[in-house]
Amino acid sequence: MKKLSRFNDWVDGELDFPLSTLHDARPERHERGRHHSMSDSRSLSAFSKVYALLCLLVCLLLVCTLLAVAAALPGFGSEENPTVNEVSEHYVGQAEHETGAENVIAGMILNYRGFDTFGESCVLFLAVCCVMQLLWSTGAEKKQKTDFGGQDVILSRVCRVLVPCVLCFGLCVLFSGHTSPGGGFSGGSVLGAALIIFALAFGDGAVSRFFSRRIYNLVRITGLMVYALMFGCYIFLGANGIESELSRYIVLVVDIAVGLVVMSTMYGFYSFYTKGEL
């Protein structure tokens, strides 16, 4: 906790980075006096003019080049497209047999390219960690932020109808990701949206009653751990050798794990942006 506040101080510029050699340069700059600032601002405005011209030039060059490339591409929707090759044919043809998922895209991202999706989940996890470190409010700031939730009658009445429907829809999308359109990412974001609406309508206290910081961290980490363990075991057991039923089960579990990570990410972003804590 103390380290975190030191980090915050460093981000705010109140604390210098330990191996700073900038300290020695500072008094020298002070002596140079203020008459430099006028010429500085003049050179700055001249620089901004040149900069705008250069930017326009670069953009024009880029648009010409890219349009020339786009005109040379095979037409939209044609079968000669180089992306429609034997790889995609293998995915479509073998996905149901090898992964047990009727949704080829879910089978592809959670089975053939499972480690890639694991990396994506880690990116989300790290994004929440970065936002947490940047926006975790210290004691002084915390008092200024007031909780507007739970005051609005119309919103809370609407949400009493809306939140169960959105939750059901999110769960439906999450659990049927391997057989129909949907999956962990979309289902997880719908669930996160339901949590955010709930927090807006009934106040943050209502959410933290069942989704406290402990549980939040637990859900977040459990999602990633379940993904890593299940997929690691699956690869270790020989991937394609497993019969179809078991691998469908693995796709479903991994999908739910991704959904948990995405849900907690969405709610975490909301929570840290509005009140700076969980």
Binding site: D152, I154, L155, V158, L162, C165
Partner: peptide, 13 residues
């Protein structure tokens, strides 16, 4: 039904 519930509520907020 969803639009009827959410649109006016969002505008009200």
């Amino acid at each position: 039904a969803f639009m009827f519930l959410t649109g006016p509520a969002a505008t009200h907020l």
